[in-house]
Every structure is written in structure tokens, then in C-alpha cells.
Amino acid sequence: MKKEDRLEKNPIEEYLRMDRIPHIWCPGCGIGTVVTSFIEALKKNKEDLDKVAVVSGIGCTGRVAGYVKMDSFHTTHGRAVPFATGLKLANPDMKVVVFSGDGDIFGIGGNHFIHAARRNMDILIICVNNFNYAMTGGQVAATTPMTANASTAPYGNYEYSFSLPYLADACGATYVARWTALHMRRVTKSIQEALNHRGLSLIEVITPCVTLYARRNRLGDGLNLLKYYYDQSVIEHGADTRTLDIAYQGKLVCGKFIDKEKPTFLDAMNTHLSNVLGDDYELYGRINNEND
């Protein structure tokens, strides 16, 4: 019996709330693979799970917080980033990861993202981009490519879409990468790097939304689309972020685009106030990351 137990035990079980499995994601959806990559990265980095928190907003990807066995917060639509900001500032020795979707972080939460990036807040944002609002039934999003069909763009989308790496770069993010969900090892590696990066990191992972975006646009089943995105990808590390627009079923430039050092919000606060106020200043949080 014990042997069978061992056989049945999923190697990532201790990272998941097994009492909440099965999850709600559709077969062929890429969110699960991104979660697997995330857990792989935690494992490889030997992260102390007591010191990692996951914050999600609302949406399909927003459910990630509910499945990972760490301090995890399922918050309101769009507000995962400011929630994470508060959590990080209150508890600077934690690694705070925002795990949410494109609509959540860049649609309703866009303002929070740009300001968190501007401040170089020390959080990691994993954004699963499936080109539409999936939880509510496939509405057009800020990331929907031109001409693609959505339930609220029944004749095709005619709005320009965000290029997330370009936006993040312009706003001051200090680590920016993009992959498709099938780049599992590369996603894992990026997350590993970003977990050790001090400052705001954004990892965009493109995944198919099988049930809605793919079906409405007749793009085949999940596995096909996963593979299609993978095949369409071109890896260009350090590519100029101005060139990263995504056209409908077009080329997907992937890679690590930005990886630079800049004082985080807390570093800047501590350094500046120490300089100005000298001994009168009460240092806040830890100054140097032990992992550095």
C-alpha cells in the first residue's frame, strides 16, 4: 500500500493544496503548466515556502492563489498588485509573487501596474496572457490582437492592444521576459531568476484559452494552439521592447528583454531618508538581500 501511495503521490504535492484539487481550469488551458513551472522554480531555488506569498486578483489565473500551499491571497479584480505592495512593505523579508491574468493586471489593474513598475516595487508579477477575459466568457481585452473575435467584439477587435513588455519597460520594470506556456523550462528559469531579482519583475506567459478565444476564432484545440504559439515564437533575448507587438496569430517574440539593477522602493526610501535625516531616521526592513 505504501508503495502505491508513493507511486500516486504527485511530486509537486507539497506545494499544492491537494484538498482543493481538481482545479477549475479547462483541459488544454495553459495556466496549469505555468503553475507547474512556478513550482519547479521554487523547488530549484530551494525557496523557503514560509517566506513566499502568492497574491492573485480575479479571473481564471486569479484562482492560482487558491491552489498553492503558501500564504496565498485571492483579492479583488485588478488589485493584486497594490495588495502585494502592502504585503511586501509590511513584511519586507517575504518574496511576494502576483499571479494573475492579463485582464486583471493590465485591464482593470493597469494603473496599479504602471505605478508599481515606476516605484520598482520588489515583487514578481507572473501574468498569464490568454488574449481575452476568460472567466466572464471571452470578452475583448486590452491584450486582444487586432481583428481577433471576442464575445464583445463579435465582428473582430479594432482596438490597439498593449505590448506588455514594452509597457513594463517604459514604466521602469527591471526584469521583463515573455514566453509561451510550452516553453516550460524557460519559464521555470525566468521565474528562478526573477525570484532572486530585486525590483519589479514581469514574466508574461502566453497561453491558449481553449474554451473561448480558441473556439470563437476557430483555432483548434488547446494542445494544437499551445504548439502553434510555441512554433510561432522567435527567441530574441534583449530585443528592443518597442518591437514586441503581437499580431493576430502572428510571430511571438519571446525571451528575456530586460534584466537590470536599480534600487527598489524600500532601498530608495531607506537610502534617501538616511541621507537626509541621518541618525534621526529609523531604518525600515532589511537593507540587503541575503541572497545577493
Binding site: P82, F83, T85, N111, H112, H115
Partner: peptide, 24 residues
């Protein structure tokens, strides 16, 4: 000894407060 942060709006202020409260 503590943190003051001016957020981008009141939606964010409240979210940050809840995060900070769970941070202790």
C-alpha cells in the same frame, strides 16, 4: 519606524492596507 506610501489612487490605498494588515 514604519512606512508611508502615497498610492496611485484610493482603490490601491485600500488594497495596500489589507496586504499590510496581513503582513502584520
Amino acid at each position: 519606524g514604519g512606512v508611508f506610501i502615497q498610492m496611485e489612487d484610493e482603490l490601491a490605498s485600500m488594497a495596500a492596507l489589507i496586504g499590510a494588515s496581513w503582513g502584520g
